[in-house]
Design a binder for these strands. Structure first.
Ligand SMILES: [Zn+2]
Ligand SMILES: [Zn+2]
Ligand SMILES: [Zn+2]
Ligand SMILES: [Zn+2]
Lengths: 152, 152
DNA sequence: TCGACTATGAGAATGATTATCAGTGAGGAG
DNA sequence: CTCCTCACTGATAATCATTCTCATAGTCGA
């Protein structure tokens, strides 16, 4: 896999947005990429404890920067933990995320054909620069199997 | 307009979800519907002060219930005020919201043709019961005019 | 290499949300 | 219609994610 490639890309994007590249930011981005699912700032901070003590403040700031640079995305679809910000790593180009409602596993979903919809919304509403925030939710095969097994 | 109709529908949905209908819940739902834009629990609480002092706790709980019943929707597209939950009133059937990034004005956008996309995602991923959370963001005509006027 | 300007992080502060729990009211059974 | 049960309400206190502060350390262009 391209472990180094997407990290380099992420750091390049930080630079392109006028932000410096620091060891802490690299580590936060790596931990975010390696996370099993949408992860919060505090969980990331805890995950980073072993190797190095990175301050919570830095984690919060870095997540905001990464989101600004398009390297991280703040998941909106979580119905539980409504007031907790969770992020996923975003590599490559435009895509969206499918989140399991039960175990919170995340899959990237490419090729949303929504560019034309954005243009259509612009036409109908008069708004400019219309874009979209889109998440998919569902039940992953594993959780679906468990649920059907538990059915009474 | 159908002021009474959508309130009655909202209360019916509460009942359908096993929740009682109370004067407080009616007032919260009305205030939410009459709000100019996405509104937070505390702003709703303040807006309700004049007529009647409704406890903040009730406002929070009612918003959660309304969201559960599909009568309220928690906007996710707000980049500012990241850690503040804002809700909009949802009447009728499936639709989405277009939010101005500057003034936070909200427009309902109907007819997203995403049912087929949901099915397609199910096919490609094996997930079951796939649905979507979708918000549009953009700049409303008024804010676009101000921005171009300020351009140096 | 050097300097200006940005990033870091421990601690305290902020502030939205949630827990508690006694009192109140909604709504179904009879 | 009345009564009983169980859900709802709300003042208060507690929780806890996020932000502020500011002195120190590091980044990166020149
Ligand atoms: Zn799952
Ligand atoms: Zn898209
Ligand atoms: Zn606007
Ligand atoms: Zn839709």
């Amino acid at each position: 896999m391209d472990d180094r490639r997407d990290m380099a890309l992420a750091m390049d994007r930080l630079l392109a947005h006028g932000h410096a590249v620091t060891p802490q930011r690299r580590l936060v981005a790596q931990a975010l990429r390696d996370a099993a699912g949408p992860i919060s700032a505090q969980e990331l901070s805890a995950a980073l404890e072993p190797g190095r003590g990175i301050g919570q403040m830095t984690v919060y700031r870095t997540l905001a920067l990464l989101a600004d640079a398009g390297v991280a995305y703040q998941i909106a679809a979580t119905d539980a933990d409504r007031h907790l910000a969770r992020y996923v790593f975003c590599s490559g180009s435009h895509h969206h995320h499918l989140v399991c409602q039960t175990c919170h596993a995340v899959l990237e979903v490419g090729g949303c054909g929504m560019e034309s919809v954005d243009r259509d919304v612009e036409q109908r509403t008069g708004f400019a620069g219309v874009g979209h925030h889109l998440d998919f939710v569902g039940t992953c095969p594993a959780c679906a199997a468990v649920a059907s097994g538990e059915g009474h």
